[in-house]
Nucleic acid binder design. Structure first.
Length: 253
DNA sequence: ATGTCACAGTCCCTGTGA
């Protein structure tokens, strides 16, 4: 089973790239974030022609998350079941594995109310995962807007005092791991630098100025079955790329 | 720190968010 997570930064703008990537890589499951479109604009029919069932939790101009699967898709859930109007998490069961596609709030700045919203959102995700069915494999993928360690930051000195690297944010990821989850790319590559996001400005991609903020958390037993995990940097190149690249996980199941 | 991109509304530019 091959799975991937990709913040596409508008599926409306990115559909040609996403379609080409699906045709080329044919993942079994793709978790998408920032579709930035309503359900009525989501390309359900074109995905079906490509062999994918899909579920979308759209909001409109912002946020929006989806699950695409060619190995079945059932028991879809949207949001945390609270009154949060922002479409940032969708869940579904694919071939017996529980998936979540997550778009964690950006946070904006440490003294911004949105930062508290980010921490509260991560805490809710942690509660959801703490209560999960431990007899089922789980993949929690998405744009976490947190770099788990300084190894995931091209120049930690640039990020002093900024979001994405603060201790409370990193502690929130630690709380997810404490429920028995593993940061798959880091588990398979303990020392390597992989980035998944590069700012559009300043030629950041070509200068190597990136962060690893797109993550695949999987349960420990599933991590044992993993054969590969990497960032597909090629998807950040070429015409009208997203500012994020897909993160892939491969499993012998 | 900021050389970009995408959005909406209104229009072919501006403010906002990332």
């Amino acid at each position: 089973m091959n799975v991937a997570t990709w913040n596409v930064n508008s599926l409306t703008a990115r559909w040609p790239r996403v379609r080409a990537w699906l045709e080329d890589k044919a993942p079994d499951v793709l978790l998408i974030q920032e579709t930035k479109q309503t359900d009525s604009k989501f390309p359900f029919d074109e995905l079906e022609e490509l062999g994918y069932q899909s579920a979308h939790y759209g909001q409109g101009q912002w946020n929006g998350v989806a699950i695409l699967s060619r190995v079945g898709l059932e028991d879809v859930t949207r949001g945390f079941g609270d009154d949060d109007p922002e479409a940032r998490v969708i869940g579904g069961r694919c071939s017996g594995v529980q998936f979540y596609s997550c778009y964690v709030p950006n946070g904006r700045a440490l003294d911004d109310p949105h930062y508290q919203y980010k921490l509260a959102w991560l805490a809710k995700l942690g509660q959801l995962l703490a209560q999960r069915d431990r007899s089922v494999h789980v993949v929690v993928g998405g744009d976490f807007n947190v770099a788990p360690s300084d190894l995931d930051v091209y120049d930690p000195s640039v990020y002093v005092g900024l979001t994405h690297v603060s201790q409370p944010e990193r502690d929130a990821l630690g709380a997810l791991e404490a429920t028995g989850l593993v940061d798959l790319t880091r588990r398979l590559h303990p020392e390597d630098r992989y980035y998944s996001w590069w700012d559009y400005r300043n030629g950041a991609f070509h200068r190597g100025w990136g962060l690893r903020i797109d993550l695949l958390f999987v349960d420990e037993a599933l991590a044992e079955l993993a054969t590969a995990s990497y960032v597909d940097r090629d998807a950040r190149k070429g015409e009208k790329p997203s500012d994020h690249a897909p993160v892939v996980g491969e499993f012998s199941i």
